[in-house]
Amino acid sequence: MELIKIETGNFMADGGAVFGVVPKVMWVKQYPCNNDNYCNLSMRCLLVKTGDRIVLIDTGAGDKQSEKFFSYQHLNGDDSLCKSFDDTGVSLDQVTDVVLTHLHFDHCGGVVSKDQDGVLSLTFPNATCWVAESQWENFHQPNVREGSVYFKENIVPVLESGKLKLVKEDMELCPGIKLRLFNGHTLGQIIPFISNNGKTIVYMADFIPLKASIPEAWVSAYDTNPMVSMSEKRMFLQEACENDYIMFFEHDLYNECCCLEMNDKGIVAGESFKLRELTSIFATTTQRP
């Protein structure tokens, strides 16, 4: 098994939204913000090569939304989905599966591309695209908070191509990759669990988007059901601590991975580290510095 991080650029979000009811005086010690209270967040995806499958988890924001919309997101950084793929030695048409954790724009926008004439096409033409059935239903009938981050052009072309597959419940995508559903942030968020050589790395998506978000009560204001988020987090942290899971963060610009530790305060984050440090665990692990 080979793991490759795919950086697709960064965006900025209000710190109060990122950390919900946690006072700024507390969260700013754990994650920086600028003078306008905005936190810079990565859109870090993960490519998994295992057996005859090449699986991409999430795709970043893409470039299809309007200039006005993207101006609100303060996109920044030099990375992009295609640029990162150029550095992997994997071509876009070699990807066999794309797992979209959910359909908010910053997670699925890159799965469909738009050319200079405005024509839409699949970025990964030979890939099956996996989305939770409950998330798909939520996409079609969103609540007032999520409606502004769902865009038909980000996923409908996948449906029309016949490449969309819906996940009804927890499942094994292929040996070594399990897809589990969580519902606090949004209905049917897929969280992939990737296992090899007795170790498991979990792609955290918006379930626990940052290392600073690990404490149970540190729930984002973006979560549609915060009480469910806290309950899911409580159970996951216990499981992760007992099994020594590695957490891979999609949105933490400063921390790629960490494990958990138990101390007199309960379950807390351990030291952070880079994905490339997992080479001995996941056979051959490749990524850019």
Rank of each mutant, 00 (worst) to 15 (best):
V228M: 14
F282I: 05
V95E: 03
E261M: 08
M204C: 14
Q73D: 04
G110S: 01
F248H: 07
V99A: 03
W27P: 05
K83V: 08
S91C: 07
C39K: 13
G266R: 09
C33I: 05
D52Y: 07
S195V: 02
M43F: 03
V21E: 15
K168H: 10
N35M: 07
C82W: 00
D223E: 14
A212D: 00
K211P: 03
T284R: 11
H251F: 12
V149Y: 06
G89S: 05
L120K: 08
F248G: 04
D78R: 05
A283I: 03
Q287F: 00
K274Y: 02
E250T: 10
V119L: 03
L164D: 11
L100A: 05
N196F: 07
E160M: 10
E169F: 00
R180S: 05
L275D: 07
P226N: 08
V18M: 12
P226Y: 06
T284E: 14
D63L: 08
N225Q: 15
V219W: 00
A269G: 08
V219N: 07
F273E: 10
L179P: 08
E67P: 00
P226F: 00
S80V: 06
E67G: 11
L92V: 12
T285L: 12
D63F: 00
T59E: 04
L164C: 05
S220L: 02
S80Y: 01
S91V: 00
M43T: 05
L159N: 13
L75E: 12
